[in-house]
Amino acid sequence: MAADVTAANSARAPLSRFLRWDILVGVLLVLVFAGGAIGSPEFANAGNLSFALGDLGEIALIALAMTLLVVAAEVDLSVASVLGLSSALVGHLWDAGWAIETIIPLVVVVGAVCGLVNGLLVTRLGLPSLAVTIGTLALYRGLAQVVLGDRAIAEFPQSYVNLAVNNVPGTPIPYPVALFAVLAVITAVTLHATGFGRALFAIGAQVEAAHFAGIRVKRIKLILFVVSGIVAAFAGVVYTLRYGSARADNGSGLELAVIAAVLLGGVDFDGGKGTLGGVIAGVLLIGLLRNLLMLNDVSTEIQSVVTGLLLVISVITPRLVAVARQRRRAPSPVMPTTPTP
C-alpha cells in the first residue's frame, strides 16, 4: 500500500510547501499497521485484513469522487443519503419482484439525478455546496424512508451477494476492493495527469483565473456532482449486498468518514491542493484504526468518536502548521492589494 502512495505522490502535486502532509499520513499508516501487528495477534493475518478492506469498500469508493470535489473547492454531504436511498430502492424493487439486473442500472441513474440536483443548485443558483448538500442530505434520506419506511429487505440472490463479499479467486482481495483499486488508478490519472485534473486544481485554487482561462467551471462542477451521485448510488448497491440487508438508514453518517478520510489525506478543504495517494492513505488509516478498535472490543460508538476526532485534527493541524510557519517567516511576498489605477 505504501508503494501506491509514493507512486501517486511522485505526480508532483502543488503541496510541496506543506511538509508533505500526505507522506506523513503514509508514514503514520505504516506505524499503525506495525503497531497493530505487534499489539494484537489477530490483526495482521490475511483473513482479518481482507475483512478490514472489504469493510472500507463504500467509504473508499465514495472518497474517490469526494476528492475530486474537494480539490475543486466543493463538497457533497449528501453522499451517505444517496447511498441510503439507493439501498432503499434496491430493497423495495427487489421486494416488488424486479430483477437485480434491472435494479442496478436504475438506482445508478437515480444517483446521477441526485447528483444533478446538487450540481444544478450549486452552479445555476450559485449556492454554497455545503448548504445545498446539507439540505439534500435530509431530502434524500427522507426519500429513502418514504420508499422503504422501517422495513428491512433481505435475501438477495446469492450470486450477487458473493460478488460483494467474496475475494477475487486466489487473492485475499474482495471484489469491491479490486474494483476500488481499478477506479483509484483511473481517478489518480484523471486528477494528476489529464487536462481535466489540471482544470480541477485551477478551479479549486483560483476559480476566477480558471474562468478567465476558458475553463468551463460550471460544467465541470456539474459533472463532479453527478459522478459523486453515481458513485454513492453504486456504493449503496455494494453496501446492501454486502450486508444482505436493505434499510432506509443504511450508511447514516458515512459522509463523515469519507470527508475525514479525504481531509486526513491532505486535501485542502479550501480546494486546489491534495493528492489522491494521500487520500488512499487516509482511507486505509481510518479503516485500520477502526479494525484495531474493533479487535480490541472497543464499541462502535467510540469508533465514531475516533473518526470525529481524526476529522477535527486533520483540518486543524495544517492550519496550525501554516500559522507557525507564517510566524517564523516574514509575511508572504504579497504586495498591498488596494487597486491603484
Partner: peptide, 27 residues
C-alpha cells in the same frame, strides 16, 4: 475555540464534534 481561533470551517468542526459528542453519549 476551534472555529474562532483555529480558523477551521465551522461546518467541518461541528460535524466532527457532533460525532464525538454522540459517541460520548453512547459510551
Amino acid at each position: 475555540l476551534l472555529v474562532s481561533f483555529g480558523k477551521v470551517p465551522a461546518l467541518v468542526v461541528t460535524l466532527g464534534t457532533l460525532y464525538v459528542i454522540q459517541g460520548l453519549d453512547h459510551a
